[in-house]
């Protein structure tokens, strides 16, 4: 589904990714782990098409088509979803309007009929309850004045509604209490099917207590230093990133 070949990325004049190769298939959950500054978040953002990142070399394809020249909204409508590490506040834009616009954009791109307000309210209600997001938040502007945990739940809510093919979770676990962490784990497991895939970008192993990854990759200094199965994450937790560095 997602194919990354020899990807080199820089921002300004700073090289961040230095030759990433990664292949994610339907039905898989991959975890990208690594110390601070290793380029994890850059990888997440560059797949979603954040404009300030420059691809110097290599390419990214999604379902066998290159997406390097697509705008972020085009990628999103292909089914790529990024759960942001720091979801931005959108003052004055009501949650409902935002989520409906986003859902309708996706339906429209697939030549499907937009939801009616009644249909939308119904699915929003169901998913909000599943995620455990306070209905008061639904009446507010997007992320405005939300706590860290509320912002992350909001990302999970949008993920559940948009049903992406590829979900990328950029450090979604950081700063979360144990209940919120559980919600994130449940959301991912619930959504996960044979037709879609998930990429979890994280510093710690703890989210992986709730989600069992198919593969784990360790990113150090812009390169994948080691790949393995779920056991690798557990080893890392015990031995730290220095262990990987000492191997290379």
């Amino acid at each position: 589904m997602l194919q990354i070949e020899n990807l080199h990325v820089s921002i300004g004049n700073i090289k961040i990714l230095k030759g990433i190769n990664l292949s994610v298939n339907s039905g898989e959950i991959h975890a990208i782990m690594g110390p601070n500054g290793s380029g994890k978040s850059t990888l997440a953002n560059v797949i979603a098409g954040k404009p300030e990142y420059i691809i110097d070399e290599g390419n990214i394809s999604f379902n066998n088509t290159s997406i390097d020249n697509l705008t972020p909204d085009e990628r999103a409508n292909l089914g790529i979803f990024l759960a942001f590490q720091y979801p931005v506040e959108l003052p004055g834009i009501p949650m409902k309007q935002f989520i409906k616009t986003s859902l309708d954009a996706k339906l429209k791109s697939k030549n499907m009929k937009e939801t009616t307000i009644r249909e939308f309210n119904e699915i929003l209600k169901v998913e909000s309850e599943n995620i455990g997001i306070d209905t008061k938040l639904i009446k507010r502007s997007v992320n405005e004045g939300f706590s860290g945990g509320e912002k992350k739940r909001n990302e999970m809510l949008q993920m559940a509604l948009l049903k992406p093919e590829l979900s990328i979770l950029d450090e979604t676990d950081s700063g979360l209490d144990i209940d919120a962490l559980k919600t994130v784990g449940q959301s991912v497991n619930k959504l996960s099917t044979e037709e879609n895939a998930t990429l979890i970008v994280t510093h710690y192993q703890r989210l992986l207590n709730y989600i069992t990854p198919t593969k784990v990759h360790v990113l150090i200094d812009g390169k994948i230093s080691k790949s393995g199965d779920a056991q690798l994450a557990k080893d890392l937790e015990l031995r730290g990133y220095d262990w990987i560095k000492s191997l290379t």
């Binding site: 404009p51 972020p72 909204d73 990628r75 999103a76 942001f84 954009a105 948009l162």
Partner: peptide, 9 residues
């Protein structure tokens, strides 16, 4: 970017 990541032009 946030809006566009959600599929909005």
């Amino acid at each position: 970017f946030y809006c566009m990541q959600r599929g909005i032009s």
